[in-house]
Simulated assay, not measured.
Amino acid sequence: MSQDILDRQQHHLAQLLEAIQRCAWFLHQSEVRVAWPLEAAWLEAHKKDIDLFETLAAINERFAKLQDSLASAMRHSALLAGEPSDNFLKVLAFFEKQGIIDSTADWQRCRAIRNMAAHEYATNYSEIAEHFNLLHELSHILFHTARRLLALIIDWLQISPSSQDFSEEFERIFD
């Protein structure tokens, strides 16, 4: 019975790893469709460009999903490794010590910008440009966190993504 529980927990983590690869790849693919950095005047001139604003909406959503998937995988892998996982700040501190995240402050910056996107609806094109430029800048933190976390979990817990469907594409993000 306890082995079944462990198997389910390991399988769940493997699915989270696949979700991380998928989220990272789709975020990256959306980002390459945009000419960075965005400028307010350019956004205003293209304010009715459906493809552009659908891409920007996808970037918002995929950034949030990637960070959420990373957080779930960090918490879950800490639990499987017997590390404290009751408080997410403890989880972040543990993964900072492991070199998975560069700093808790960087993670919190990513979280703050992600939460702003979910709760604020800017109509000022300068604010919109600033928001998306910051998302783009911070997405690199999430990409590198994803890569290091996957490597650690594979090495540490011998758990790989549940499928290899996005493994090759995930690695191409770093080429």
Rank of each mutant, 00 (worst) to 15 (best):
R62I: 04
P37A: 03
Q158N: 04
R114Y: 08
T145Q: 10
S103A: 15
S167Q: 09
N133E: 02
K90F: 04
S160H: 01
I128D: 02
T55Y: 08
D175W: 12
R75N: 05
L149I: 05
P84F: 06
Q98N: 14
A41Q: 02
F94D: 14
E39T: 02
Q108W: 08
Y121Q: 12
S160V: 06
Q29M: 00
L157A: 10
A24R: 00
I50Q: 13
E137Y: 06
L79G: 07
F132R: 07
S69E: 09
L43D: 00
Q29I: 11
A146H: 03
I154Q: 13
F26R: 06
F132L: 02
L89Q: 15
F53D: 09
S167H: 05
D175A: 04
I159P: 07
K90V: 11
E171L: 10
I128P: 04
H136C: 01
E61M: 13
H144Q: 15
Q158M: 00
I159A: 11
P37D: 06
E130S: 05
L135Y: 13
F53N: 07
I5K: 01
K47W: 02
L27H: 06
I159G: 11
V34L: 00
R8E: 09
A57Y: 00
I59A: 05
S167K: 01
A81M: 12
I101M: 02
L89T: 15
N115T: 04
F63H: 01
E83C: 06
L157V: 09
K47M: 14
N87Y: 05
H144S: 10
E44P: 08
D51W: 12
I141L: 15
S163M: 05
L38R: 03
S139A: 11
L56G: 07
N115K: 04
W42C: 08
S126Q: 10
D7R: 11
L17T: 10
E61H: 15
A78D: 07
T55D: 02
A71Y: 06
L13A: 12
L6H: 05
D68W: 05
P161G: 03
F132E: 12
P84D: 11
I128A: 03
A64R: 07
R148G: 12
N124W: 10
L92D: 13
I141Q: 14
H140V: 09
F132D: 03
P84M: 06
V32W: 00
A117T: 13
A105Q: 14
E18F: 03
D68I: 09
L152P: 05
I101A: 13
T55L: 02
A112F: 13
H144Y: 14
